[in-house]
Design a protein around this nucleic acid. Structure first.
Length: 566
RNA sequence: UGGGGCGUAGCCAAGUGGUAAGGCACCGGGUUUUGGUCCCGGCAUCCGGAGGUUCGAAUCCUCCCGCCCCAGCCA
């Protein structure tokens, strides 16, 4: 309850070291990075690591970071994704200024460069089918063989390539290939395909093109056009770097960018494969791309995670080349850390148990002053109505308390936070023996929560005045997958979806101030966790998402079976 | 068994010849009107393994072992 934790300073890593050295040695004057998403899905926490890296470096070294959509495959890309991606990056806290680009903006230039290679005898049109190309490519241990079309005359290649562009051939009929080395031990250099024919509507260029460049032919050149100095990508592109360099060296590009690779983020109990995420959405396993259980930025946002918590996570996790799987608890820690500092405290009762204060005047209402955030005195206090009948958490009472349970029990006195000390006198049950009400008395001298005689109850409970309580639905969220490493053991990922990943609670009661809390604003329900109004919320029908629980030592003791030990 | 990478605590991760940072998790203790926060302490005689070089090695050399990526007209 003291020193507010600091946002961790950006530490150095091997990429930042390279950037610093390039700046220091004058190899570059200004660092220019780029974040290059393909608009074929929503951004997820793994992308956040890359975004924080690229935009973070630009910010730290006084350079700039471009947002460039890698939209070279119209079969999978959609405007909806472009919009969502821009929204999510902004939400994360980054800005690309005027530097919004699309690989498709460079299609004409790329085409000209392809012609350049053809004229130089370094690219050719191949008539082989996809299957044949695969056969000719060889294997990991055997070299490939040259296509029969490999030595086609330049003029013929030029003519055919122009006609490919003109739409004279059907999809798959021919491709343009770079002529490099069919025997290269690096398969990426065995005459990689540069262009394929795709008679598809492109989200941005419409039907202007029916041939589209492959990633390898588009990415590096796009970097060169934008004068990107450090093209940062994930490890799986490492083997592509020689090809990246080959194109740069063999083309009259305006700059010579360099590619650097780092290990992508993996999280336990989480899947970050776009393919799988798409299936979860399509098959209705979740409520959509922004389901609070999804690792997408939009899901995390809906869940109530603050962007700062994600940024902190990215910096704490670091950047290296070791394949790693970070425990999701680490993310939860940085999120709690931010929320603990910022979130307003509120009262909400998830599983209500009625308490009647037999010695409290009927009809009387007191406005209790309650701190908005003990971590931040500047957050002030609020008034919370208190009256004779209250709701408390059913878990906060035990008729026959076990050894380490020190909440309410018959004959026991506890503190109602910022209100009074109360003592349980009587337990009321229904015919089935279920506890339906607790009859208690309060000590008027403890108003506000402090006893003049200095006595201190072992427990402090949250509460809501029954007459003023606002009903709400609360959705409890847990890991989407029970398996820490979903899919690694060969089991179908969909079979390890946690059936309890979403639990919908109805009949919850929250304090009056919560009725007007804006969607997406995360508050702490004292002693329970962090919650935020979901977009499904409506004026008379509040819906809250549980962002995260608070750390809960008592729950841990019970789970370990230690609550009853001496 | 082709090529490219990587192996430091349960999980991340510094360190790059001078005798193992930090965070998460975990375990103790203190404070506390949230069993939260905060504070204090503990947690690698050892850096995938084996040799070698050196006064001295996680850091250099050799060999071995393990894991990841590449055979899309995906990115």
């Amino acid at each position: 309850m003291t020193t507010p934790a600091q946002t961790p300073p950006a530490r150095s890593d091997f990429i930042r070291d390279i950037v610093a050295a390039d700046l220091r040695d004058g190899r570059i004057r200004e660092v220019v990075t780029r974040f290059p998403p393909e608009p074929n899905g929503y951004l997820h926490i793994g992308h956040a690591k890359s975004i924080c890296l690229n935009f973070g470096i630009a910010r730290e070294f006084g350079g700039r970071c471009h947002l460039r959509f890698d939209d070279t495959n119209p079969m999978k890309e959609e405007q909806e994704y472009i919009d969502a991606i821009e929204r999510d990056i902004r939400w994360l806290g980054f800005d690309w200024g005027d530097h919004l680009y699309f690989a498709s903006d460079y299609f004409e230039q790329l085409f000209e460069w392809a012609i350049h290679l053809v004229k130089a005898g370094k690219a050719y049109v191949d008539d082989l089918s996809a299957d044949e190309i695969r056969e000719y490519r060889g294997t990991l241990t055997e070299p490939g063989r040259p296509s029969p079309w490999r030595d086609r005359p330049v003029d013929e290649n030029l003519d055919l390539f122009e006609r490919m562009r003109a739409g004279e051939f059907p999809d798959g009929a021919r491709v343009l290939r770079a002529k490099i080395d069919m025997a290269s031990p690096n398969i990426n250099l065995r005459d990689p395909v540069m262009y394929r024919i795709l008679h598809a509507e492109h989200p941005r260029t419409g039907d202007a093109w029916c041939i589209y460049p492959m990633y390898d032919f588009a990415h590096g050149q796009s970097d060169a056009i934008e004068h990107i100095t450090h093209s940062i990508c994930t490890l799986e592109f490492e083997a592509h770097r020689p090809l990246y360099d080959w194109f740069i060296q063999n083309l009259p590009v305006p700059a010579e960018p360099h590619q650097y690779e780092f290990a992508r983020l993996n999280l336990t109990h989480t899947v970050l494969s776009k393919r799988v995420l798409l299936r979860l959405v399509d098959e209705g396993v979740v409520r959509g791309w922004d389901d609070p259980r999804m690792p997408t930025l939009s899901g995390i946002r809906r869940r109530g995670f603050p962007p700062e918590g994600i940024r902190d996570f990215a910096t704490l996790v670091g950047v290296a080349k070791t394949d790693s799987v970070v425990e999701v608890e680490y993310l939860e820690h940085t999120v709690r850390d931010v929320l603990n500092r910022r979130a307003l405290r509120r009262f909400g009762v998830l599983d209500p148990l009625k308490v009647v204060l037999t010695d409290y005047p009927e009809g009387q209402v007191e406005e209790m002053d309650v701190p908005n955030n003990p971590e931040d005195p500047g957050a002030g206090t609020r008034k919370v109505p208190f009256s004779r009948e209250l709701w408390i958490e059913r878990d906060d009472f035990m008729e026959e308390p076990v050894r380490k349970f020190f909440r309410l029990a018959p004959g026991r006195e506890v503190r109602l936070r910022s209100a009074y000390f109360i003592t349980c006198d009587e337990v009321v049950k229904d015919e089935e023996g279920r506890i339906v009400e607790l009859r208690c008395t309060h000590d008027p001298a403890t108003r506000g929560g402090d006893a003049p005689d200095g006595r201190r109850p072992k427990a402090t409970l949250h509460w809501v005045s029954a007459a003023h309580a606002v009903p709400a639905e609360v959705r409890l969220y847990e890991h989407l997958f029970t398996d820490p490493y979903p899919g690694v053991d060969g089991r179908d990922i969909f079979e390890t979806v946690n059936p309890a990943s979403e639990q919908v609670l109805t009949g919850c009661f929250v304090e009056p101030s919560l009725a007007s809390l804006p969607v997406g604003e995360t508050v702490q329900f004292e002693r329970l966790g962090y919650f935020c109004p979901d977009r499904d919320s409506a004026p008379g029908a509040l819906v809250f998402n549980r962002t995260l629980t608070l750390k809960d030592t008592w729950a841990k003791l019970r789970k370990q079976g230690k609550h009853d030990l001496a």
